[in-house]
């Protein structure tokens, strides 16, 4: 069974639904019409572009090209992590931390999956490598953004407590330990929830996609389980790296809490 190709008319009908929603939103003054339309346009443009990129890449599946796309994806994800922070570390540290954490976890986990588990020929076959990395990045990005946001916010709100612990002779690491745990948990909860709800409340997108394109359900299920585990590991280790170094950056060499290294945005 092959894929049933979608016609422009099919997409136009779906677009009309979004258009109707935007119209309704505008009439009811919900203030969502504009952002909705812009987001819908962005989806169309961005996905079409990535479609073109992937088509070109599949035609020329060499390691340098696959790596180049992978690196661009990590850098863009790093920017997204920074954009979601209410209080950022100054001097580009938020970007550096987020990108490094994602780089380490997503690259390590998808490398392991490609080389050891999936065993495609060649191992960097873009049909496997790019979607896998994309899914990992999307999820680790969420985890890292959530946990860094929680960490900086908790350090700011509970600075009195942190300094009280410091004055009582605790090390920086002990003084911020409760906030570190709290923020790691915040980063991991989404993937734990989605693993717990998978198959009962929601059919995961990748599995649905594979079934739609004709893969036998049990094969799709195995891939989905693999992906979920990889995401959990990638998000978990990425969050740990980001939170550990993020917390360290909030203190200086004399273990002073340096909230002047945070700047508030919007």
């Amino acid at each position: 069974m092959g894929v049933i190709s979608l016609s422009t008319l099919d997409l136009a009908l779906a677009a009309a639904l979004v258009g109707a929603l935007a119209l309704a939103g505008w009439r009811l003054s919900l203030g969502i019409a504009r952002p909705l339309v812009i987001a819908a346009l962005r989806t169309t443009v961005q996905l079409s572009l990535i479609g073109l990129v992937l088509t070109a890449l599949f035609a020329r599946a060499t390691l340098p090209w696959v790596l180049a796309l992978a690196i661009v994806m990590v850098l863009l994800a790093g920017r997204e992590v920074v954009a979601r922070q209410k209080r950022r570390l100054t001097g580009g540290w938020s970007y550096l931390l987020g990108t490094t954490a994602m780089f380490i976890s997503s690259f390590a986990v998808s490398g392991l999956a490609l080389l050891v588990l999936i065993n495609a020929e060649p191992w960097y076959l873009p049909q496997y490598a790019i979607p896998l990395l994309g899914m990992l990045l999307g999820n680790t990005m969420n985890g890292i953004a959530l946990s860094l946001e929680r960490l900086t916010d908790a350090a700011y709100r509970r600075r009195g407590e942190i300094e009280a612990r410091l004055t009582l002779g605790e090390t920086w690491s002990a003084a911020i330990a409760p906030m570190r745990l709290e923020s790691m948990r915040a980063g991991l909860i989404p993937i734990i929830n989605s693993m717990a709800a998978a198959g009962i409340v929601s059919l995961p997108g990748m599995m649905t996609g594979q079934i739609l394109s004709g893969t036998p359900p049990m094969e799709a299920v195995k891939y989905q389980i693999l992906i979920m585990f990889l995401i959990a590991a990638g998000t978990g280790f990425g969050t740990m790296v980001a939170v550990w170094f993020g917390a360290k950056r909030l203190f200086d060499e004399r273990e002073r809490l340096r909230l002047d290294r945070l700047k508030t945005t919007n």
């Binding site: 009195g160 300094e163 009280a164 004055t167 002779g169 605790e170 090390t171 004399r254 273990e255």
Partner: peptide, 23 residues
């Protein structure tokens, strides 16, 4: 001061802020 770790210094030189914090 800089010859000892910061937390050891703060343990030996105890600072009582005007407002106390409890967690």
């Amino acid at each position: 001061r800089q010859a000892m770790p910061a937390n050891v210094w703060r343990r030996r030189v105890g600072y009582l802020p005007a407002e106390s914090h409890w967690w």
